[in-house]
């Protein structure tokens, strides 16, 4: 039995779930990660320490274990067994928030201190300094590593199969189990991953050009 359009359609459906799960991880992770990045550079030491501890714990835990904890662990402590999409989504949001927070903290801190000072000397509030002066410059620096991490998220969604979630890699595995043509099947799976990830890289380059307006 060889690869048929039905198999391709099944794999394509898995690819859609991969895109969906990546979007959940990225949007949720971005919101939480941005708050954490701000907390990491907060003038209040307690806030900085809390955010730092969260990030260290999450970064020190393998994503696979995080996914298991959400899928099986929450059921043990009284929550009914979570649907795979919710467990995988939560796990990936937590995972990406910690990494995005550290990427963005680095970008915020790489804006020269003199820019903060210049904005401060113009009597801008801390919030105005952040929004009008620091963030636009940090965003330019953050574009490439953020998109690089987004591509990592897309590929790491393949781990969601361990909690029974049928995304792109798992769909490929299931098709291979029926037709036993691993090379062909996984070439198709790889092509789908490329189709998802390549536009992200292209978008990153165009975004960098746009944000780089002042340096042309």
């Amino acid at each position: 039995m060889s690869l048929t359009p039905v198999h391709i359609e099944f794999i394509a459906t898995g690819a859609l779930w991969t895109v969906g799960l990546s979007a959940i991880a990225f949007v949720g992770g971005s919101i939480l990660g941005f708050a954490l990045a701000l907390a990491r550079i907060s003038p209040v030491p307690f806030v900085r320490r809390c955010a730092g501890t969260y990030i260290q714990i999450v970064q020190g835990t393998p994503l696979l274990v995080t996914l298991f904890l959400f899928y099986f662990g929450l059921a043990v402590v009284g929550f009914d067994s979570l649907p795979a999409i919710v467990a995988a989504g939560l796990g990936l949001v937590i995972y990406s928030s910690a990494f995005l927070a550290e990427i963005w903290r680095g970008c915020l801190e790489s804006v020269p201190k003199t820019q903060w000072e210049a904005a401060e000397c113009l009597a801008l509030t801390r919030w105005q300094r952040m929004v009008r002066v620091i963030l636009p410059q940090a965003m330019r620096i953050a574009t490439a590593p953020t998109v690089g991490f987004l591509v990592q998220i897309v590929k790491n969604t393949s781990l969601a199969s361990v909690v029974g979630f049928v995304e792109l890699a798992q769909a490929g595995k299931l098709v291979n189990n029926t037709i036993f043509e691993p090379f062909t099947v996984f070439i198709v799976v790889a092509a789908f991953y490329f189709v998802i990830c390549y536009p992200l890289s292209a978008w990153s380059r165009s975004l960098e050009r746009k944000l780089n307006a002042g340096r042309r």
Binding site: T114, E117, A118, L122, L124, R132, Q137, G214
Partner: peptide, 24 residues
């Protein structure tokens, strides 16, 4: 005014100047 100018590189000259009067 600082030795290293410290203009905001993502803003045009006019926007650099307009920032504080509009915000503050």
């Amino acid at each position: 005014v600082f030795q290293s100018y410290n203009l905001f590189p993502h803003l045009t000259v006019a926007q650099n100047i307009m920032l504080a009067p509009t915000c503050v």
